[in-house]
Each structure stands twice: as structure tokens, then as C-alpha cells.
């Protein structure tokens, strides 16, 4: 294989700025799955997520001629643009989950989760994520599913590290509450 596989993202992007289509395709292979994962978790809609990722990458190609190595991480830049696209799309929607749809909490999420299949766990989490405010949802997905470090999330979301910690902590509490309120769907009873 050629040097594309070993080259850092920023070197590939500089090559894109010089018209290298293969470098652009190598970047798509690296970045698109991660970006799509985030957008799908946050938006909860495959088509919308794909559109958001496509828009993000088109923007990346546009800034490629001005990209300077060492100024920023390409993936951080992409996440930042994607987070903004997702926020715009979420704001354009009506709230999908009414507050009164969250039922009374039950005592034990753990036993319920242990009895679920992987797919059911995935679905339960996706549903619970949908109940979180936009910023909390994005922060929780970046931290606990994409497993990014808090300083990088802070850069992506334009917040301080402390604010990210607070956002993810509140997000986790809200997730627990949302899961506790869905005892029927989770397949257990008191």
C-alpha cells in the first residue's frame, strides 16, 4: 500500500488542498464511520445523520486549501462542525418526548439491563438519549460512546472542561431517570 494509510489526518488534508482525491477518500474512510456514529446517536435518524455527515465533509474539503498542519486536529474540527449541524437540526424539530411521558422511577435498572439482549440495550439507550436536552445528549455521546477525552469535547463544544464535566454528569443522571421511567419497555416490573 502507499503512504496514505500511515499519513496523519492533517497531512492528508493538506494533500486534499493540493488536489489529491485519494487523500480525500482516505480521510472519508477514517472519519465517516465515527461521525456517522455520533450523528445517528444524537439525531436518532439514519437519513438525517447521513446528511449531517455529508455536509460536514463537504465543508472539510472547502477549507482544505487553507489548512495548516499543527493548527488543530482534523477529527476535532469535524466533530465541532458536525455537533453544530446536529444542534441546528435538533432545534428545528419539535420536542419528541413530552416530560409527562417519563413515568415514575422504579428501583432497579441493573437487573433489568442484565436481562436484556445487546440490541435491546442499544435501543433502550437510544430512546433514553432522545429524552435529554441537546447539549447534554451530545456531550454524553462524545464522552461515553465515542470515548473522547473531556478536553477534546470542550474544544468541540466550545466549553470549558469543567462545563463538560458538569454537562456529562447531569446527562448521566437524566439518562438514569429516563431509563427508570421506562420499566415496561425495558421488560421488567416491580
Amino acid at each position: 500500500m502507499d503512504g496514505l494509510t500511515e499519513a496523519p489526518d492533517s497531512a492528508l488534508l493538506v494533500a486534499v488542498g493540493n488536489g489529491d482525491g485519494r487523500a480525500a477518500q482516505a480521510l472519508v474512510g477514517r472519519l465517516a464511520p465515527k461521525l456517522l456514529s455520533h450523528a445517528t446517536r444524537v439525531l436518532g435518524d439514519k437519513d438525517e445523520a447521513q446528511d449531517a455527515v455529508q455536509e460536514t465533509l463537504v465543508k472539510l474539503w472547502k477549507i482544505a486549501p487553507e489548512w495548516r498542519q499543527g493548527e488543530a486536529k482534523v477529527s476535532t474540527w469535524c466533530y465541532r462542525v458536525l455537533v453544530n449541524h446536529c444542534t441546528d437540526r435538533l432545534r428545528a424539530r419539535k420536542p419528541s418526548v413530552a416530560l409527562d411521558a417519563i413515568a415514575e422511577p422504579v428501583s432497579d435498572i441493573k437487573s433489568a439491563v442484565e436481562g436484556m439482549t445487546e440490541t435491546a440495550r442499544n435501543d433502550a439507550l437510544q430512546h433514553a438519549l432522545g429524552t435529554l436536552p441537546d447539549r447534554q445528549r451530545q456531550a454524553v455521546v462524545l464522552r461515553h460512546i465515542e470515548e473522547l477525552a473531556n478536553p477534546e469535547i470542550a474544544q468541540i463544544m466550545g466549553l470549558s472542561v469543567e462545563a463538560v464535566e458538569s454537562l456529562t454528569a447531569r446527562g448521566k443522571r437524566a439518562l438514569k431517570q429516563a431509563l427508570e421511567g421506562r420499566k415496561d419497555e425495558l421488560g421488567y416490573a416491580e
Binding site: 489529491d20 472519508v28 465533509l57 472539510l60 472547502k62 445487546e118 439507550l125
Partner: peptide
Amino acid sequence: AARSQSPAADDDFMARLMADAETGAA
């Protein structure tokens, strides 16, 4: 569970992105 079941990028979508990449570089 969510990490192990990341949404997969389907072939049509990836083909779209690859075409964009060629156009974008040009």
C-alpha cells in the same frame, strides 16, 4: 452495547461521500 453496535455506514452512503471527496479535492 452502544459502542459494540455502532451504526454502520452503508455502501451507497460511502459511495456518495467518496464521490464528494473526488469533487472536493478537484
